[in-house]
């Protein structure tokens, strides 16, 4: 288990989560998971339902406190920090079930993503929000309350809010869930262009294997709260054990 750390010697990984354990009332959700995401790397996180993917993202972002383990950004311990200070340290996440500021407009929702960093001039904030709106094709609805948008557009707002601050580490919890194929294509494009523009490290959960395989440099498969496999997308796609884990849960086929 774990990933071979060779070739990533000089700079510290953008994100490390080491020995993460989380138990909920006797149920062990995470049982000593080690994950490292290198600078600018995209790590896909696969695993059947209940394997602990979202719990891992929750532990890293501070939404839940792990029972044991350390979380580091650029080699600096952040496990003791509050959620908002983690965000200000450059760790931003999205949610599987949208968590938008429902009464705020689209533009305001995105601007909130910029307020973490203090002292950004208003002019600069405005330009960044405008560019972000353009990237996601949300200019025409910029000043509508976000609750009036259809689901797919709301999903884009959440991605825009996460990307606008150019985070160091981005945690994406099922960004493709509920999107049609063209919308998934747009999402993929947005994430690629973000990565090339400010080279952020990403940890991405999704059940859409095409999306994950297309974007990830490396994939980690979780099963029952443990790391089952780690490797390149090609290695993982052909791994019999990974296939069997998925088949045990989803009888029809290897996910989509």
């Amino acid at each position: 288990m774990g990933s071979p750390a060779a070739g990533r010697t000089s700079p510290a990984p953008a994100l490390s989560a080491l020995g993460i354990e989380k138990r909920f009332a006797g149920v062990t959700a995470l049982d000593g998971v080690d994950i490292e995401v290198g600078q600018g790397e995209t790590l896909g996180l696969l695993g059947p339902n209940g394997s602990g993917k979202t719990t891992l993202v929750n532990c890293v972002s501070g939404v839940v406190r792990p029972n044991a383990g350390r979380v580091l950004i650029d080699g600096i311990e952040i496990g003791h920090l509050s959620r908002d200070r983690r965000a200000r340290a450059g760790l931003i996440r999205t949610y599987q079930n949208l968590r938008l500021f429902t009464d705020l407009t689209v533009a305001e929702n995105i601007e909130v993503g910029l307020l973490a960093q203090r002292g950004r001039p208003r002019e600069q904030r405005r330009n960044l929000v405008r560019r972000s709106l353009a990237e996601q094709g949300l200019e025409d609805v910029a000043r509508l309350p976000v609750s009036e948008l259809p689901y797919g557009a709301q999903k884009r707002v959440e991605v825009a809010r996460a990307l606008v601050s150019e985070p160091k580490v981005l945690l994406l919890d099922e960004p493709g869930a509920g999107l049609g194929s063209s919308e998934t294509e747009l999402l993929s494009e947005a994430l690629r262009s973000a990565r090339s523009r400010f080279s952020c490290a990403m940890l991405m959960i999704d059940h859409n294997v095409n999306l994950i395989m297309g974007l990830s440099d490396r994939i980690v498969v979780l099963s029952d709260g443990k790391v089952l496999r780690s490797g390149t997308p090609a290695e993982i796609a052909g791994d019999p054990e990974v296939i069997s884990v998925y088949l045990g849960q989803v009888p029809q086929k290897l996910p989509r």
């Binding site: 908002d84 200000r88 968590r99 500021f101 009464d103 705020l104 305001e108 929702n109 307020l115 973490a116």
Partner: peptide
Amino acid sequence: LRTRAARDDPLAAETSGINV
């Protein structure tokens, strides 16, 4: 704006870097 964001979703506001 920070306050209104925290009103609509305190958790999302925190993970966006807002001290609620």
